Amino acid sequence: MTEGNFVDYIKIHAESGKGGRGSMHLHREKYIDKGGPDGGDGGRGGHVIIRANTNMWTLYPLKFKKHFRAEHGGDGSKQRSTGSDGKDVYIDVPLGTIIRDGETQEILFEITKENTEQKLLPGGMGGRGNWHFKSSTNQTPRYAQPGVEGQEGWFQLELKVLADVGLVGFPNAGKSTLLSVLTSAKPKIADYAFTTLKPNLGIVEYRDFQTFVMADIPGIIEGAAEGKGLGHRFLRHIERNSTLLFLIPADSDDIKKEYNVLLNELKQHNPELLDKDRLLAISKSDMLDDELKAEIKQELPEGIQTLFISSVAQQGLTELKDTLWEMLND
């Protein structure tokens, strides 16, 4: 999937179906002059339903179709025949999708599990036919209920990428290169900041045909939690990851400072992110000899396991995968 096809934010308009009218019918048959009321009920209007689709990774299919309308219910008829229910409309979304009210921004529900269906807008109830209103004092009611109107509104869909491991780092830290080496994903790679503008997903193959999903989150900058750059758009994807892999290049001026800045941005965005498992990888380590590695180790942040890796030279990657697998399955 190319970067331009990754869509993580969309607005749609949905409208459920109106309920069918109840029938106002009096039974007529040969030799039966006054058969009484036999008008049937109207059918319910169609629902608008959000459905999880595990084959989708993005909201891209909704980019070109933003209006969804369910069918109206059929009208009731004679002999107490109920009208047909309106056909439901299903909107398929990937796992990790949040649905908000388009006006109030209130979160209505989230789609995070397979085989999940959530009713976004219920269809209107069908009206009752006149036979419901027959009584001892009114044996031929000449009225029936109209169907209940359907509902409509604008809704906001946001995708938070679901992945086992999320790559966290400043722009140009080597996240896309690492993803391209560990997986078959082909993210855009170049020697300048903000090469990646959309999250990229890749499947890491481990021993015995086991796998886990890694996400390359676009680079974070200081002030991202306040919305600087595209901070909010980037940070929300990290919330769904089980383990966070911090990536800081070996040629950084101050590794400890960069790590603390990244950690602080996560904390300001959502303090619960600090409860996730964390691992620090020093990328581009093929530039270091043993003496330089020993110097860097003395200045590393405390309380987090650290590995030295090189995506280009294929150094430390097996140990990295082993460590991540242990963290995911601890």
Rank of each mutant, 00 (worst) to 15 (best):
D290E: 15
D85E: 13
T211S: 14
A294N: 12
R28Q: 11
G166R: 10
W325E: 01
R236K: 15
E3S: 14
I255K: 07
L121C: 03
G126W: 09
N138C: 04
L244F: 12
L235R: 07
H25E: 14
L279N: 10
F64V: 03
F212S: 08
Y60I: 11
M24Y: 00
G169Y: 02
Y31K: 12
Q268F: 11
H232Y: 08
D253E: 13
W154S: 10
G202Q: 13
D289F: 02
T323G: 01
K267T: 05
K276C: 13
V89D: 03
G86F: 00
K321V: 14
G231N: 01
L273K: 13
L245H: 02
R207A: 11
G147M: 05
N264R: 08
K321W: 02
K188M: 01
A144T: 09
G126D: 07
G22I: 04
G223K: 06
D254G: 07
E152H: 06
A225G: 03
T2G: 11
A52E: 14
I91V: 13
D253G: 05
A144C: 10
E71T: 02
R21S: 03
F68C: 01
N172L: 10
E3C: 02
Q305V: 04
G40Q: 02
N130F: 07
R236C: 12
M125P: 02
S176A: 06
M24H: 00
S84M: 04
M287W: 03
F6T: 12
L274S: 11
L280S: 10
G22D: 05
N270Y: 10
L162C: 09
L230N: 11
G231T: 04
K87E: 13
P218M: 01
K87A: 11
I309Q: 08
Q156S: 10
V93I: 15
G303Q: 14
D8I: 03
T318F: 08
T82Q: 13
P199F: 07
L263R: 13
A163D: 08
E222K: 06
R44S: 11
G40I: 05
F308W: 06
Q268S: 09
D216L: 01
D330F: 10
I296L: 15
G231R: 02
G73S: 05
S81K: 15
Y31L: 11
I50G: 10
K188A: 08
M24F: 00
N55F: 14
L320K: 05
Y143V: 01
Q314R: 15
F308C: 06
W57M: 10
D322S: 10
Q298K: 15
D289R: 01
V168W: 05
S184M: 08
I10R: 11
L280N: 09
